[in-house]
Design a protein around this nucleic acid. Structure first.
Length: 919
RNA sequence: GGGCGCUUAGCUCAGUCGGUUCAGAGCGCCUGCCUUACAAGCAGGAGGUCGCAGGUUCGAAUCCUGCAGCGCCCACCA
């Protein structure tokens, strides 16, 4: 037997070689044949593809550990378990990274030109792109690496184009001029979901627009009718007041709006007011959007820079005036004085110009939500521009139905409604991005003046199908990254080809991700699944929490509070990392890890793996070299402990399976932990030690060996999905009962199912009585100062049936675990400790001759004296009126509490002393 | 403005159908042990008005109502 295992688990030397072997043996690889021909039931997870430029962080660590648990578990259940890995080209993110690199050399992407820039990005991706996937190997992810995909792979790009053309042909993709979220730094359009609102404390500025003299009379009437927006300056000139948080937009105002039913302003509709600083005049219009109750009931209209104002303009026919350039500097439509200015600079300048003109009506503090770019955190600018959109309503219908009829379930369940509400209120998806890195929009425009055909095609057209002209220009924009990700569950299998992979592995089963991308990705994948395959891409969505630091802050590079999973793996091992995060993975709760003390943060996992390692070491060492009999052979000789632990194993299998099915990850971990540590290691191994040494005879030893092998095998199988390395390392060293068939690898060893024949309520009750008894005796021993090594005897006046059975043949257990040398029946007499078990059994521990009574008595007395001394001190303090009246309530309360506790403690000691004195 | 979630031991969190696996775990703390698998361990222990106030019930951490604090998501209120 291999006794050369070190007493401390060394993950570094264990994990790497094991993983290399798994890869080599191809256990992670699944072929469609296994499903289509051999009829194995598939189980498929597609990885949420990390950004190709990403480096593994703890969020990935958690996400992929959970997926790996599910995959390994299903694999052991005999499913054709396929986990497809890959990366996302991450349009904006990747382009930003490379642009930043270029910037260091003083270059911009424009300097390189489109083609050279794309090449540059490709080179970067090829050089660094595999990093994160290699890191996944280090945490034990059992992905099918022969199937690694990238969203810009030719096959996947083909799927993207196919989808674009199909939707275009169904009129579900359209192009149009709308207000979209624009990032002035990334210089691209963003989808609604990509603009994140952050609460910002800003200013609400009140601006005055002068009314022309002919309208003054009407204004005066309106004012007396309660029109708060109207006012008169010292010279008696009337003006109206509008408010805005973005004063610079006033340069693009083309109107002022009131509610059509707002009687106060009725007489002013149609009047043209003077727009300060511009020399323009703009009309007052009526539109139902305006809330007469809010503010003054009058609102400035900037159609090109506010989505609502755009709507108002399209209803009332107001002019649309774009004053901002893509980089958010003021453009040619702005007055000359402001042209070229940045929007924030312009804001200041506009305000001071208005002040000079006496047209500033003051400001107030105003907290509101301001949209920021989800990639670079720049304040997003609503901007009118020509973009491509997907009509989402028709796509949303089946996706919504799937959640309503239970085809797709969300875990935790509360996300179902979040998902449904988003789908019910879905808006069209802006899919064009003004970037160079991504899938180019497959649309060409015929340059022939008289033709101007728009061509959307699967293959690049050589000539215009309408006029035959060869001067075609492709749309310069690329598609939103998510436009390729939403196809991931089938594009990775070669769709639109009807490949064997598609047939075998679509639809998949579980999707594991963070709630942040529920809308970005999950919902859209479901929509795409129905639209292009007629079937949901998976049936369960598991949404886990976010990894945070000890203060509850999200881990981020800028805060420097991140934890590098690779460092954790190096120091404590992948198993430690996995177990730690899994055990903290409560339902819908975030995970807190202290980045400043990795030692403490990952101790639970490291300790667990090490304990498992040592239990394995012990098991291997104490089994001995002789052949292990099968459980059947030793059946007649099984003892209470054997039957009990088998019963527990069966129970653990059942509960862990149930929890896995319901995605209750922390339950799985907790049950595994307690079964292994609290039941197997703490009790079974201890109980079985003397038997393994042969002290109880050959039959007992063989029964123990057969049970031990069987149960430890069960332990390793149950824990393997959680801590694959240490379990596999031990499992392959575990001896095997003669004649039993041994699976090739723990990875494909059958998942333990509950065994009905093992379930033994009798053994369970008997064992818990025995455990209770042992615990009480240990407790009494401590309490009465019985030396560690000293034997005691036990007197049991009346014994419950269960305990009686337990004690029959288990006196060795008492000897081993509680140092009870002798058990006798009868009434306890003389000096000794009494206790009563929960079932009413009275126990008595004679202490005469065991405990040095004199010493113990004086020790007790000494302790009582010490207590008494402290007590008088506290009492004096409490009697001191100065203290009681002047000290804070809490402090006094604490002192009282202390006194109370000491009082109780003294009572206990007194009682003990009486017992030791034989009274 | 709407919606959701959380509040249980010093810290981080479990707690399913309302009731003998309900007041739990890990970490931390105290005491004693280097007992031949493990000191990254073993044994024993201290520590909680289950956010607050009502209600339903024979019985509430659990169900209902209100309140407070914290967090998240969505939304076009200038």
């Amino acid at each position: 037997m291999d006794t050369a295992l070190p007493p401390r688990l060394d993950p570094a030397s264990l994990e790497k070689p094991l993983y290399a072997r798994w890869k080599e043996e191809g256990v992670f690889h699944v072929t469609p044949k296994e499903v289509l021909e051999a009829g194995r039931e598939p189980y498929v997870i597609v990885i949420p593809p990390p950004n190709v430029t990403a480096v593994l962080h703890m969020g990935h660590g958690l996400n992929n550990t959970i997926q790996d648990v599910l995959i390994r578990w299903r694999r052991m259940q005999g499913r054709a378990a396929l986990w497809v890995p890959g990366t996302d080209h991450a349009g904006i993110a990747t382009q930003n990274v490379v642009e930043r690199l270029l910037q260091r050399d003083g270059l911009s992407r424009q300097d390189l030109g489109r083609e050279a820039f794309e090449e540059r990005v490709w080179a970067f991706v090829k050089e660094t792109g595999g990093t994160i996937l290699q890191q996944l190997e280090a945490i034990g992810a059992s992905c099918d690496w022969e199937r690694t995909r990238f969203t810009l792979d030719p096959e996947l790009s083909r799927a993207v184009r196919e989808v674009f053309v199909r939707l275009y042909e169904k009129d579900l993709i359209y192009r149009g001029e709308y207000i979209i979220n624009w990032c002035p730094r990334c210089l691209t359009a963003l989808a609604n979901e990509e603009a994140e609102g952050h609460e910002v404390e800003g200013r609400l500025h009140h601006l005055r627009y002068p009314l022309p003299e002919p309208a003054w009379e009407a204004a005066a009437r309106a004012r007396s009718a309660g029109a708060e927006a109207l006012g008169k300056d010292e010279q008696g000139r009337w003006y109206l007041t509008v408010s805005t948080t973005r004063p610079e937009t006033m340069l693009g105002d083309t109107g002022v709006a009131v509610h059509p039913d707002d009687e106060r302003y009725g007489g002013l509709v149609g009047v043209e007011v003077e727009l300060p600083l511009t020399g323009r005049r703009i009309p007052i219009v009526a539109d139902a959007f305006v809330d007469p109750e809010f503010g003054s009931g009058m609102v400035k209209v900037t159609p090109a820079h506010d989505p609502n104002d755009f709507e108002i303009a399209s209803r009332t026919g107001l002019e649309i005036l774009n004053i901002l350039e893509p980089d958010a500097t003021l453009g040619e439509n702005a007055p000359a004085a402001f042209r070229g200015m940045d929007r924030f600079q312009a804001r200041k300048e506009v305000l001071s110009a208005l002040k000079v003109a006496g047209l500033y009506g003051g400001e107030e503090v105003h907290t509101h939500s301001v949209p920021h770019c989800y990639r670079c955190d720049t304040v997003v600018e609503p901007r009118l521009s020509d973009q491509w959109f997907v009509r989402m309503r028709p796509l949303a219908q089946p996706a919504l139905a799937a959640s309503l009829d239970g085809t797709i379930t969300f875990h935790p369940d509360r996300w179902t409604r979040v998902y449904q509400e988003w789908l019910e209120n879905i808006r069209d998806w802006c899919i064009s991005r003004q970037l160079w890195w991504g899938h180019r929009i497959p649309v060409w425009y015929c340059q022939d003046e008289s033709c101007q055909e728009v061509i959307c095609a699967r293959e690049d057209p050589a000539e215009c199908p309408a006029c035959g002209g060869s001067s075609l220009e492709q749309d310069p924009d690329v598609l939103d990254t998510w436009f390729s990700s939403w196809l991931w569950p089938f594009s990775v299998f070669g769709w639109p080809e009807e490949t064997d992979d598609v047939k075998a592995f679509y639809p998949g089963h579980a999707l594991v991700t963070a709630p942040e991308i529920l809308f970005f990705w999950v919902a859209r994948m479901i929509m795409a699944g129905y639209e292009f395959r007629g079937e949901a891409p998976f049936t369960s969505v598991f949404l886990h929490g976010t990894v945070r630091d000890a203060q509850g802050r999200k881990m981020s590079k800028s805060l420097g509070n991140g934890i590098d999973p690779m460092e954790v793996v190096d120091r404590f091992g992948a198993d430690a990392l996995r177990f730690t995060v899994l055990s903290m993975c409560g339902v819908g709760t975030d995970i807190h890890l202290d980045h400043e003390d990795l030692e403490a943060a990952f101790a639970p996992g490291r300790n667990f793996a090490n304990k498992l390692w040592n239990a394995g070491r012990f098991t291997l060492m104490s089994l001995g070299d002789d052949p292990v009999p099968s459980l059947d052979e030793v059946e007649p000789h099984l003892e209470l402990a054997d039957r009990w632990i088998l019963s527990r194993l069966s129970d653990a299998s059942e509960q862990m399976t149930r929890s896995l099915e319901r995605f209750r990850i922390h339950e799985v971990t907790e049950r595994g932990y307690h079964f292994f540590w609290g039941e197997f290691a703490d009790w079974y191994l201890e109980l079985v030690k003397p038997r393994l040494r042969g002290e109880a005879g050959g039959e007992s030893r063989q029964a123990a060996r057969a049970t031990l092998v069987r149960v430890f095998d069960g332990v390793l199988r149950l824990l393997h999905p959680l801590v694959p390395f240490v379990t596999a390392g031990l499992w392959e060293r575990l001896p095997w009962p003669e004649g039993a068939e041994r699976p090739d690898s723990l990875l494909v060893a059958p998942w333990p199912e509950p065994v009905e024949a093992w379930a033994s309520p009798e053994a369970e009750t008997a064992m818990s009585s025995l455990q209770e008894l042992i615990t009480r005796i240990r407790s009494l021993r401590k309490e009465y100062g019985v030396p560690e090594g000293a034997d005691v005897s036990l007197v049991l006046p009346a014994v419950s049936a269960a305990l009686d059975r337990a004690l029959t043949g288990e006196s060795r257990a008492l000897a081993g675990m509680a140092k009870v040398a002798q058990v006798s029946r009868g009434e306890g007499q003389g000096v000794g400790a009494h206790d009563v078990l929960p079932d009413g059994t009275e126990i008595f521990l004679p202490l005469e001759g065991v405990v040095d009574l004199d010493r113990e008595r004086s020790r007790l007395k000494q302790e009582m004296d010490r207590l008494a001394g402290q007590l008088t001190g506290i009492r004096k303090k409490l009697e001191n009126r100065n203290f009681v009246e002047r000290a804070p309530e809490a402090v006094v309360e604490k002192e009282r509490d202390k006194a109370f506790q000491m009082e109780a403690q003294r009572g206990k000691l007194e009682e003990k002393l009486m017992i030791l004195e034989g009274r």
